[in-house]
Amino acid sequence: MFEARLVQGALLKKILEAIKDLLTEASWDCAQGGIQLQAMDNSHVSLVSLTLRSDGFDKYRCDRNLTMGMNLASMTKIMKCCGNDEIITMKAQDEPDTVTFMFESKNGDKISEYEMKLMNLDQDHLGIPETDYACVIKMPSGEFARICRDLSQFGESMVIACSKNGIKFSTSGDIGTGNVKLAQTSSVDKEEEAVIIEMQEPVTLTFACKYLNNFAKATPLSPVVSLSLSPDVPLVVEYKIEDIGYVRYYLAPKIED
């Protein structure tokens, strides 16, 4: 039997918003330690990795490891039936054909239940080695979303150049060029408003704006985003999810032919 209760049900709604445009379907792997999801987008250029630790749930029980293949458009329909202040419980039997989402109002006088059919997904998992990145940037997630949105008006790809002086995001297209430079914050009142660069060596890489804009849909999950870059390996865009886990997006850099 599997059961996971999340008093802050809105978190699961935000998680789904953060992945549903990138992935059409995904497997939720449930074990005693928590829930994990790893899936590539249709073009296999980006990868989503979600971890929700069992201790972050208000109640968590998983007697046997199980994999629940879900159509994320269907899951989105169900999550739209859940109020932002409602408590979510996910339930499934061992070797399940369906998963049940139960939504409870805070005072307990309304309970909705939705049962969704599961799918058999033949998804391959990729092993991602621990990597020391040349540059790790922490910055306000809202600022990152805005830069992605603004620059994607000009071109399909964005250059991210990180040096000890700061980060430069730039793009060019038919109508002209645009760039945004961010300096490292010298003194911070609030850590979540700071731009912090940990740099081993300067890096310049090019990425597709379309995917970066998709990753920015996780902005409501965290005030801070971290970007990890190294030459010739995928960019990692990470949003921490309160005390429960994280969502990481991996994006292959563009390589000149």
Binding site: V45, L126, K254, E256
Partner: peptide
């Protein structure tokens, strides 16, 4: 002109 590498060229499946 760009060529975009797929994830599998970076990370091995298991």
């Amino acid at each position: 002109i760009f060529r975009q590498e797929g994830m599998r060229s970076f990370y091995r499946g298991y």
